[in-house]
Design a protein around this nucleic acid. Structure first.
Lengths: 313, 313
DNA sequence: TCGCCGCATGAATAATTACTCACGCGATGG
DNA sequence: CCATCGCGTGAGTAATTATTCATGCGGCGA
């Protein structure tokens, strides 16, 4: 622990000298009295550990334009468009920093906020960009059960990561994301802790949710929460997207399916007055995002440039 | 204006791809359809124009800033600011690990170093944080007699502890810290071993010293080296601090007092070119530290966060 | 219109950074 | 106590980035 800490300290120092001080790694090595290689490793560690945080302080004209158009076209409260990272990159990478900045603007508020979060890669990446801080006046509450079919806590467990970074009180939902049977779901929902969390979630001051597509690459399916035939069934009923387990059609209206009775989350009702921020990007998600916007399930959006362009096409 | 703007946009985009996307300038060039050199120039411009803001997300980020300010404000060779340990903790605790790291960076040098050390709680705590090692190419030399008025070796006997941890040759000064009479002092200083050590100390490659305040809590007084009336006398002459027994005023100029003729140490002359590292922290020591910095008795400082802030206030 | 100036460009090259590898040290477990 | 494993280290090297320099293009005044 002690050596761990001093290692990070050294990394932070090296990173500071490199990125802020603009020194070469050679100079840093001399300054710190270590070898050049070690200086390099420290700098790279500072980056890898996320000690160094980079943000873009310039709104690229095109992104600004897309944001304004999104707000106007879909009647949003706010929109953020991250510059394109290029074809190869994971879309979540692009939105992560931008979404983190938006979340931080809520965290900066003096009044205690109840912040409800969903799950997924996009939110997970966002949390990775949040600056660690001591910020215990806000509460983090989970919108959705995080127990996977095999009983393990989900890999993309956003709430724990976020609470860890903020040292904030947090309320995970101790229930399966999708139960085996309606009875199992009812049983979980009868539990006091589950009800407490659900009630808290329904009164949140701001929501951050991912958006799942319902094509063959659907996260629900890919991550093993539903079977291929269940997916096909929902597709047949017109499903195009999913938010915290709630499946909806092309107009953003929730669709009732056999699965609906098994979902252990707090469904986001359309037309919320508080910010409901969808964080999603990628060609495959365009239909799902558009539907969520149309149905006013979300009223704020963080996405990337090509996705924004597609949404407006 | 338009071209200006699109230039900045391009720079911002290149910077985003480079720092957030982690792409090489080659890839960026391909992505943006420009030459590699142009991509490089755009990235560099993004930095120069401050389009990309880099921040350090680590508790020592604030410390690093304070260090930079201390170096600038007082013209220091180097400064280290340890993170605050909270109100309750002994200030020496905070500086110990940081000072030890600094000392170790000197120990790591291949060329043999002569390392001169003073005494005091801060240095004692520092030595406690030094990792034991077999490092006999350096020499440790004492700057100050370590015989207390009662004849016992001082409790805070830094040099023995340090030499023990390093297995390095060491040269304690076999003389009283403060003699009873000028004659006694002269007698000790006539001794060959004392002269040898003093000569060695004057040619040291690096100095580590504590800094004593001269208020009612003065270490010299608390540890019984001087009487209350002697303290009062020095205070009346404007004494605010003390380094290896040398007492100085608010501007960091040494003050001659009856005690001066009794001190059995090697006075640190101002304006040394080799590192003279003061290790000290605590509200009570601020005036003493500031004076030592002003008078250039020390040219490097290890302190803690609140003390650094006070020194810059 | 011509010539000059300044600046952007890409080639070449220097500097810096990242990676690979073999080694050694200390921890771990039989 | 000794063999083994894993990790950190520095040397060497590949990759990447920064700088320098010669060139050419376009604007501007004569």
């Amino acid at each position: 622990m002690e050596t761990e800490n001093s290692l990070l300290d050294a990394a932070a120092r090296a990173g500071w000298l490199y990125y802020v001080g603009g020194m070469t790694q050679d100079q840093i090595a001399t300054e710190l009295g270590v070898s050049r290689q070690r200086a390099q490793r420290l700098v790279s560690k500072a980056m890898a550990e996320g000690l160094i945080r980079v943000r873009l302080d310039h709104k690229i004209g095109r992104c600004l334009e897309l944001e304004a158009q999104l707000v106007r076209h879909y009647g949003l409260q706010r929109a953020r468009v991250a510059p394109d990272l290029g074809a190869g990159a994971e879309p979540a990478r692009a939105t992560a920093a931008t979404a983190a900045t938006l979340l931080e603007s809520f965290l900066a508020r003096a009044e205690p906020q109840t912040i409800a979060v969903g799950t997924g890669r996009a939110l997970s990446a966002m949390v990775g960009e949040i600056v660690p801080q001591r910020n215990d006046r806000h509460r983090i509450v989970s919108l959705i059960g995080n127990i996977a079919p095999d009983g393990a806590a989900s890999f993309y467990d956003v709430i724990m990561l976020l609470a860890d970074r903020l040292h904030a009180p947090h309320y995970p939902m101790p229930a399966p994301l999708i139960s085996e049977t309606p009875e199992e779901r009812a049983m979980f929902h009868a539990l006091r802790p589950v009800q407490t969390v659900a009630n808290l979630a329904r009164k949140a001051d701001v929501y951050f949710v991912g958006i799942g597509q319902m094509d063959e690459t659907a996260p629900l399916f890919k991550d093993g929460f539903i079977t291929r035939s269940q997916l096909a069934d929902m597709q047949a009923k017109g499903a195009v997207g999913e938010i915290v387990g709630g499946v909806y059609g092309a107009e953003g209206r929730y669709i009732e399916t056999p699965i609906s009775a098994l979902v252990g989350g707090v469904r986001i009702e359309p037309g919320h007055s508080v910010p409901v921020v969808g964080v999603a990007a990628g060609q495959t998600k365009v239909a799902a995002i558009r539907a969520a916007l149309k149905g006013r399930i979300i009223n704020s959006l963080v996405t990337d440039e090509p996705t924004a362009a597609a949404l407006l096409a």
